[in-house]
Design a protein around this nucleic acid. Structure first.
Length: 803
RNA sequence: GCGGGGAUGCCGGAGCGGUCAAACGGGAUGGACUCAAGAUCCAUUGGCUUAGUGCCUACGAAGGUUCGAAUCCUUCUCCCCGCACCA
């Protein structure tokens, strides 16, 4: 049997699509639909199987929407700036710029080999200064509005990356890129973006998004909004703010604790306590980040006292290792009677414990009825919160307040291959922004790698005139976090060639928001938070009208190796898409990837499985497509599958869609109308576009990729046909069963109800059973029925006699 | 600790109140074709039983709701994933 040369067919159609720019789109009257795959980092390794999977998911959806008549924007680009590129380049002793050019070309070639239907005319790459110019522009706009600022604080430093990291890039105290690398906290002055200004909106906006509950929950957790009260405590005439979610326990406060990392800590420390406090701070500094979470609560008295805002009592202020410095105000009120942590601390240092909520046993951290709380006794915790906050408000010593776990985004990176931060330091004028007309600040090509930030090695790039006084000044050598680029690239696609503006608002407003975005779950608390922040900011600049960049976010599963293990070079179980394409063809790979499991679930690679997909495509390709009239049965199956497959695709149940596709093929294989053939090929083409085009070219006009999704006729869907089919195959089984029991037979007689005779084709039965089969209607007076089997006949269940 | 997601036949994986001994794929077994192999096609693939039937046991474990549960509820066990002294 001859193998079909899928490679040849695939190259032929890929060329054709390219030549005709089949998937390039512009704004038009049709309803738009924006499908987006996360732009990849163009690694030198090329496409991996994960890419093959996700991008196939997106491509199928984009093709489907296109056939449905939408004006589909489905772009592609390269997240080419960033540490991996720089590290890879260092490793291969090649400049990142050259390295990227090479790897991107290779990447693109592989993507084309997969048959993905991108609008290649809109390609965006972040290492192009035409792109990152706008990163810088956004930064300037943020700076103007006070959203980009420089601050000295404890920041996460990864020794392997040789740069600081954002909060989001620290996983369990380790670098997100180096599992083995513990993150160090360094006190450094760095650039931050004030994402916290949008924290509230970032939480509220989630409600209207079509994201999985899981994804929304993750973001909510990450932003971590809690609503409470800010209470002012007077310390020697200065008001110190304290955030609490439990003001109802305000009368149970017996001490305050200020974070040991609080910048103002020393101003509270009295002379007598100074030695103790310093000793304590020293001890804390020497503990590793890693051990921090297992640490016992410890603290030292500062010597200062605060005044209770309602009772006027003197409350000692301690400093402790368990208070987070940059959450709330870095100082907490301790209510040992109703908080376990405070209780432990109070026990350890013999501090007073008060009961202010009725409870059998302390500590009790639940809600209840207030006691020992002056005029608030008898109130329930929930109502007491409001009453006490009001009381504080009257004295102007407290107010409602929301606190967030989200921190401002640290975007400085001490590395070369990122967007230069457009800032100039002048000894005379201080921090100056680069003038808009001087953008982009291009990365200098000449730098030395290997010792700290490479940008520091190009003095002539660093030296610059101050934009204000024209005196000697120096450029900022930090570059931006790579996530800055990905925070808005989807907007650039809407007008990627624009060299005057970041994008044309009309175009962006037409295409945005992204209707369907596919990516991994790991991006929910990084990329997707940043992207939402940037979008809101650009909206506030008046550039776009939308509030949210992504309407529907779909998280795909992970492709594991055969045994369920992680794919890795060291294990030698890596599946390379290109090799698979060579062996089986891209369509087979595509089909296999989406038919194993539901797209949101992880699944394991299987060599057997892919052969199953190949077998199916071979069968389809070898089939002699000749049109004849479709009977009722064929029409039923075809129409039903058109309906159901569309639903399955819509809900990303590609695996189920494929099953149905296989089923229709079983039915139409024995012959169908031209229209039904076309319907099948159209549906198939979404999953296997090359095979689709090839078949289409035999009987359709133009490209199947640009045809339309078949329409189904509800009236042709007739489930009783399916029932009759089931009854028929049951009968075949029954006959086989009987034959098995009696050993052998020569002739089979089947007795059916008169109205069902048409469902039982003698030829079909004979073929399946392998013996001559004679069908009689039960009311046929001339029937041959020596054992009276026709008397047992029921609807859908014929009588059988074998002799 | 908090929150989320899982556990289905030899395997992968559908199903998410009846039509379920459970789609589809893979594997295995038997058969057809063939000199043979491969490919292809057909049948079987929980147990017992029977001229096509009937029964039993099954969807992590144990209970419960229901006329009826793989599907709903409760508890438990195990796995995966987020956050984690956030006041």
């Amino acid at each position: 049997m001859k193998m079909i040369d899928f490679g040849k067919i695939e190259r032929k159609w890929q060329k054709r699509w390219e030549k005709e720019k089949a998937f390039a789109v512009t704004r038009n009257q049709k309803e738009k639909y924006y499908v987006l795959d996360m732009f990849p980092y163009p690694s030198g390794e090329g496409l991996h199987i994960g890419h093959a999977f996700v991008f196939t998911l997106g491509d199928i959806y984009a093709r489907f929407k296109r056939l449905q008549g939408f004006n589909v924007l489905y772009p592609m680009g390269y997240d080419a700036l960033g540490l991996p590129a720089e590290n890879a380049a260092i490793k291969y002793k090649e400049h990142p710029m050259d390295y990227n050019k090479r790897t991107t070309a290779n990447f693109m070639k592989q993507q084309k080999a997969m048959g993905w239907s991108y609008d290649w005319s809109r390609i965006v790459r972040t290492d192009d200064s035409d792109f990152y110019k706008w990163d810088q522009w956004i930064f300037l706009k943020m700076f103007e509005r006070g959203l980009a600022y420089r601050k000295k604080s404890g920041v996460n430093w990864c020794g392997k990356c040789q740069t600081v990291l954002a909060n989001e890039q620290v996983v369990n105290g380790r670098c997100w890129r180096h599992e083995e690398q513990e993150v160090e906290v360094k006190q450094l002055e760095q650039w931050f973006l004030k994402i916290t200004d949008y924290a509230d909106e970032l939480v509220d906006g989630l409600d209207k998004l079509d994201w999985s509950e899981r994804a929304k929950k993750l973001q909510r957790n990450w932003i971590g909004r809690s609503e409470g009260t800010e209470v002012d405590f007077d310390v020697n005439g200065n008001l110190w703010k304290v955030f609490t979610t439990r003001v109802d326990t305000l009368f149970g406060v017996t001490f305050l604790v200020i974070s040991a990392q609080h910048p103002e800590l020393m101003s509270l420390v009295t002379k007598e306590q100074e030695t103790d406090v310093r000793k304590f701070l020293k001890k804390i500094k020497s503990t590793k980040q890693e051990d921090m979470d297992k640490l016992e609560k410890e603290g030292v008295f500062t010597g200062s006292y605060a005044q209770h805002p309602l009772t006027g009592e003197e409350i000692p202020i301690w400093t402790g290792n368990f208070v987070v410095a940059d959450y709330g105000s870095g100082m907490v009120m301790a209510v040992p009677g109703h908080d376990e942590r405070d209780y432990d601390f109070a026990k350890k240092y013999q501090l007073e414990i008060k009961k202010v909520v009725e409870a059998d046993k302390l500590p009790f951290s639940g809600y209840g009825v207030l006691v020992n709380s002056e005029g608030f006794d008898g109130l329930k915790s929930e109502e007491a919160k409001n009453h006490i906050t009001n009381a504080l408000q009257m004295k102007n010593l407290g107010r409602k307040k929301k606190a967030f776990r989200l921190r401002d985004w640290l975007i400085s990176r001490q590395r070369y291959w990122g967007t230069p931060i457009p800032i100039i330091y002048c000894d005379k004028c201080g921090i100056q922004t680069v003038r808009e007309k001087d953008l982009p600040v291009k990365l200098p090509k000449k730098v030395e790698f290997g010792k700290g930030n490479p940008l520091l090695t190009n003095e002539s790039w660093i030296k610059v005139k101050c934009p204000k006084c024209s005196g000697g000044a120096r450029r900022e050598t930090d570059t931006m976090d790579t996530f800055a680029n990905s925070s808005w690239y989807f907007l650039r696609y809407t007008d990627s060639g624009n060299n005057k503006r970041i994008f044309d608002s009309k175009k962006a407003n037409y295409w945005m928001p992204v209707d369907f975005y596919i990516g991994g779950p790991e991006h929910i608390t990084m990329h997707l938070i940043y992207a939402r922040f940037y979008t809101k900011f650009l909206r506030d600049l008046g550039l776009i009208q939308i509030d949210e960049p992504v309407r529907r976010y779909f998280t795909q599963g992970i492709v594991h190796a055969k045994d369920g293990e992680k794919m890795s070079k060291s294990r030698g179980n890596v599946i390379e898409p290109l090799k698979i394409i060579e062996k089986y063809g891209a369509d087979t790979l595509r089909l296999f990837l989406v038919s194993v499991a539901s797209s949101d679930k992880d699944f394991n690679w299987s060599d057997k499985g892919i052969e199953g997909s190949l077998r199916f495509l071979m069968r389809v390709m070898k089939h002699k497509w000749r049109a004849k009239k479709s009977d009722e049965r064929v029409e039923h199956y075809v129409n039903k599958s058109i309906k159901e497959i569309a639903e399955d695709i819509e809900y990303m149940k590609y695996n189920l869609a494929v099953i149905k596709l296989r089923k229709v093929f079983d039915v139409i294989e024995s012959g169908c109308s031209k229209k039904d053939m076309e319907s099948f090929v159209k549906m198939l083409s979404v999953f296997c576009p090359h095979v689709g085009e090839e078949l289409w070219s035999r009987f359709g006009k133009g490209l199947v990729s640009k045809s339309s999704w078949p329409k189904f006729d509800e009236k042709k869907i007739n489930d009783s046909i399916e029932k009759a089919d089931e009854a028929l195959s049951k009968t075949v089984n029954d006959i086989a069963h009987v034959l098995k029991l009696i050993g052998k037979g020569e002739k089979v007689y089947v007795y059916v109800l008169p109205q069902e005779v048409k469902n039982y084709d003698e030829g079909f039965l004979s073929e399946k059973v392998g013996l001559p089969v004679k069908v009689f209607a039960v009311n046929d007076s001339k029937k041959y029925d020596p054992q009276g089997k026709s008397k047992k006949v029921k609807p859908g269940r014929p009588g059988i006699f074998v002799e």
